[in-house]
Design a protein around this nucleic acid. Structure first.
Length: 928
DNA sequence: GTACTCACG
DNA sequence: GACGTACGTGAGTACG
């Protein structure tokens, strides 16, 4: 039966698909030979998704994927500048073009292209013919040039946004119906395609004119009647150029084609052909998906070749290591360590939490391959121990005696102890009466040199720098419910695992230590990383008192409030659902209640973030209630409930753990629990800080840097006005507002100041019009206007940004004022990642310098406050929290403030003063 | 295990 | 030819 009524033709804009896939995906290559295949992969995935999404009653009966062919088309003969400003096709994309044709054929879909024509013309011709035959057409593309085809059974579908575009969609975009789209385009022109149009006339004005005069020809003939003199003159002067533009944007609906619509009938792919293509491309995931769908067994793809490692780095690791069974053997190892002057140390324990973990054994390494394990608290094999006596396994030195032997070595100032994350071991040992010193830490060596390149855990480092995959801990203790603690591991197995860790550590140290100087980060490591280890270890062990009663009471109140809100939400929704499920909430909001808003993300789930719900709150009551519920739920689950669990039964306090090498910029990260994100911004949340208290006779003191990042920005970028303002103690946001908007300081309003404040923060983050617009909830153009004016007013800031990007592109890293290097491997990448990398590069020196400053303060703080009855407990990026005996608060504040304000000196003499605000009280809520 | 959401500076 | 974007974190919950 010939194509006609009841038939449905799908036309895919293949070239658009390819470009989109190319830019959306990282540069993927085929494992076996390095052929770039990222765009092919994305293209195939999009095709597959399209096929899966279009099953059912509305499935296409006919389909084709249409491509551009050649870069010279008939339009270039009309106008030689057509698409002249288009970039060359990227090098990696070129070889992928023929593969996308192959992919299309592998799916058994018609693959159309015509020399001298654009894909759009083929699409236009086929769409017109299908319409004339009485069938329906869906054009899968978001290209506005195709919108002229919509109507009379022809629609478009934007596969990226998942929206259909019909007549109304076209009118929304162009202000006119599809049949007048070319007229509007002819007037407005198109900078992307280099269609000239009429200068000074954009889509809005064009639509206005066309709607008033009916069509383009009438408009041009009656141009004299246009009331506005500027427009009138433009239309008269550029009439020919406008007519030419119309020819350029008008699609050719009447191409001669060697095939007819019937030849485009949908046929099922031949499973073997399709899988053969996908297998040859080595697309593992999609091969699996397609095989599942087609009920075929997935063909094998050869496993990728192992990463090549420098031969000399492929060190030989022993199969087994020495099990130290008695005192004599241990003494021999201790002697070796003394003789060397350094030793790698690693402790094995029963838990990751250093405050609760019990020591199970110690491993030592003095040279690559020369390592041992000293088991101390392994239990007998439970299978052999029928009576579960918890007896100790044989071949272990008594704990107390072993520690007695180890203590002099580990505390010997002439022997360097090397660890991987040695803060952990230091805390374990401290709880066993040993103050390990001096130390080196391979994790921190790596962090100083490689921040931004990769993580700094032992597994990553070993694989990357030694070409060796360590024995996974899971192979010994298992996972999930059946996981055991290390003291339950059989000693012979534990020996090989534990000694290997020490072996790896000493090899990493030998690899890293000589590089430190070459990388010019010796000072960073020695003044900002290593000295922080004992400081943080003590802070973590000190912990902070948290009042369980307060939290428990709050939990109860929150539970009641949540129940009430759930009831209200249920009534507003008209049904019961899990408020905590974004998926269910999205369905209620958008499907059931029909509120405006769209899908997003790879999963196709509706977004229900706070910003979206806030926008919806004007439409319906439910979103506001959900926001309230979310806030309370967060406070309860993350804080009032979870924090109670974290109170150490032995100390009655909460002990966080800081990771020194967690954040790329030099900031610390706090985990288990995270005490750097205790609520403060809302009144209800802030009350959680009431549970953080000082014990009887003590007071909590909090000191925080005022505007430290802006001050550092003012210094680095050398902005005299800002520096002056900081010196005079002015309100910096008000000053910015005054400079930008020309409002005298006396007439400043909170609203204008708020906007300036947002801009100041935006600058630190590597500002974008989009981001500022979203933050301030203003149109993007307006936000961009603010930014332009800001850069105009403070050209030094723009200069700093450009210089920083330049530096990063040339050197592959950026630096803080103290020499910390943050690598920026993505800075020369293309695609959306580039913007990310640029903003991160702008932010890193500012955030990183501030992090360095407070690190220096912390390192000096202990000596400065040694004579005071005070303990440093917490760090929250720009804030330090202390506990001090009542009566000594002011003395502490004076000393600590001096240390903090002078922390940059003498290494860096900032041209702006650092200022520190202080507070004190019974609780953190009062002190802050 | 991943995605989403939300707490902090 | 088009996307998606403020910087840096950690943790709890839902869901496949």
């Amino acid at each position: 039966m010939a194509f006609g009524k009841g038939h449905h033709l799908h036309l895919v804009d293949g070239s658009a698909f390819i470009f989109r896939a190319y830019h959306a995906l990282p540069p993927l290559t085929r494992k076996s030979d390095g052929l770039p295949v990222g765009a092919v992969s994305g293209f195939v995935n999009m095709l597959w998704k399209m096929i899966q999404d279009n099953k059912g009653p509305d499935a296409p009966t006919h389909a084709a994927v249409v491509f551009d062919k050649g870069s010279i088309t008939f339009r270039n003969h009309l106008y030689d500048q057509y698409k002249a400003n288009r970039d060359e096709m990227p090098e990696e994309l070129r070889p992928q073009i023929p593969l996308t044709r192959e992919a299309t054929r592998a799916f058994n879909i018609a693959c159309l292209e015509e020399e001298g024509f654009e894909a759009d013309d083929i699409i236009a011709t086929l769409a017109c013919r299908a319409r004339e035959a009485g069938g329906r057409v869906t054009i899968i593309s978001s290209d506005k040039d195709l919108m002229q085809l919509v109507g009379g059974g022809v629609e478009m579908f934007d596969a990226m946004k998942n929206v259909r575009i019909d007549r109304e969609g076209v009118e929304a975009k162009f202000g006119v119906g599809p049949e007048r789209v070319v007229d509007v385009q002819a007037l407005a022109g198109d900078s992307v395609d280099n269609v000239p149009g009429a200068p000074g006339i954009g889509i809005k004005t064009a639509a206005l004119l066309i709607n008033e005069f009916g069509d383009l020809e009438t408009l041009l003939e009656r141009a004299e009647d246009v009331p506005q003199p500027k427009r009138r003159q433009t239309l008269i002067e550029h009439a020919e150029q406008i007519r030419l533009s119309k020819k350029l944007v008008q699609l050719d609906c009447d191409m001669e084609l060697s095939y007819d619509l019937d030849s485009l009938e949908v046929v099922e792919p031949v499973a073997d052909d399709l899988l053969a293509f996908l297998t040859a491309m080595e697309f593992r995931t999609i091969v699996r998906r397609v095989s599942d769908e087609l009920g075929k067994e997935a063909p094998a793809i050869p496993e990728e070749a192992p990463e090549t490692v420098e031969p000399e780095a492929q060190a030989d690791f022993p199969e087994t290591y020495e099990w130290v069974r008695d005192e004599a053997a241990l003494e021999a190892w201790i002697a070796k360590a003394h003789a060397r002057g350094y030793v790698a140390v690693d402790t094995e324990t029963t838990a990751l939490n250093e405050m609760q973990a019990l020591l199970v054994g110690v491993s030592l390494a003095v040279a690559p391959g020369e390592a041992c394990y000293v088991p101390l608290a392994h239990k007998t094999n439970p299978e052999a121990d029928l009576f579960a006596t918890d007896a100790l396994a044989e071949g272990q030195i008594p704990m107390a005696r072993a520690l007695e032997l180890l203590k002099p070595l580990l505390e010997d100032p002439s022997v360097l102890k090397i660890g991987q994350n040695i803060k952990y071991d230091a805390k374990i040992l401290a709880r066993n009466g040993i103050d390990i010193a001096p130390v080196d830490d391979t994790m921190l060596l790596s962090y100083a040199m490689h921040a931004g390149l990769h993580g700094h855990g032992m597994d990553v480092l070993s694989e990357r720098y030694l070409g060796h995959v360590p024995i996974p801990i899971k192979s010994l203790i298992g996972t999930g419910k059946s996981q055991i603690t290390f003291d339950g591991v059989a000693v012979d197995k534990a020996v090989n695992y534990a000694a290997e860790d020490a072996d790896i550590t000493i090899r990493l140290w030998q690899a890293f230590k000589p590089q430190l100087h070459r990388a010019r980060v010796t000072t960073v490591y020695e003044t900002l990383e290593r000295p922080l280890i004992p400081v943080l270890a003590r802070m973590e062990m000190a912990g902070i008192e948290v009042d369980r009663e307060t939290l428990s009471r709050m939990s109860g109140a929150f539970a009641q409030k949540m129940a009430g809100l759930e009831e209200e939400i249920r009534e507003l929704a008209g049904e019961d659902f899990k408020v905590g499920s974004p998926k269910q909430l999205g369905e209620i909001l958008f499907d059931k209640l029909g509120l405006p808003g769209g899908k997003k993300g790879k999963t196709g789930a509706y977004g229900t973030g706070a910003d979206i719900l806030e926008d919806l709150a004007t439409e319906h009551e439910l979103p506001g209630r959900v926001l309230d519920w979310r806030q309370v739920s967060k406070l309860k689950s993350t804080y009032t409930d979870a924090l109670q669990e974290k109170i150490d039964p032995a100390t009655g306090r909460v002990h966080t753990s800081y990771s020194i090498a967690g954040a790329n910029t030099g900031r610390l990260a706090s985990t288990d629990p995270n005490l750097q994100n205790i609520p403060v911004r809302t009144e209800e949340g802030r009350r959680i800080r009431e549970a953080f208290v000082a014990p009887a006779g003590r007071t909590l003191v909090s000191l925080d840097y005022s505007q430290i990042e802006l001050r550092i920005l003012a210094h680095i970028a050398g902005i005299e006005e800002l520096k002056q303002a900081f010196r005079e103690g002015q309100d910096i946001h008000a000053l910015t507002a005054s400079e930008m908007f020309g409002v005298p300081m006396e007439e400043m309003t909170p609203e204008i100041r708020r906007q300036a404040k947002a801009i100041n923060f935006g600058v630190i983050y590597g500002i974008s019009g989009f981001g500022l617009a979203r933050n301030l909830r203003i149109p993007r153009e307006e936000a961009q206007g603010f930014i332009d004016r800001y850069f105009e007013r403070f050209p030094g800031i723009k200069g700093y940004m450009d210089d920083t990007i330049r530096f990063a592109k040339d050197r592959g890293h950026v630096e803080t004022l103290f020499g910390r290097k943050i690598n920026t491997p993505e800075i020369n990448a293309k695609g959306p990642g580039a913007g990310f990398a640029r903003r991160a590069a702008i932010n890193a020196p500012i955030q990183g310098t501030a992090a360095d400053v407070i690190r220096r303060a912390m390192i000096r703080m202990e000596a400065a406050t040694a004579s005071l009855p005070a303990t440093m407990l917490l760090q929250v990026h720009d804030e330090l929290i202390f506990e001090v005996d009542e009566g000594s608060e002011d003395a502490l504040i004076a000393v600590a403030r001096e240390v903090m304000e002078g922390a940059a000196m003498p290494a860096v003499d900032l041209s702006v003063p650092l200022e520190v605000d202080a507070g004190q009280g019974r609780s953190w809520a009062e002190a802050h």
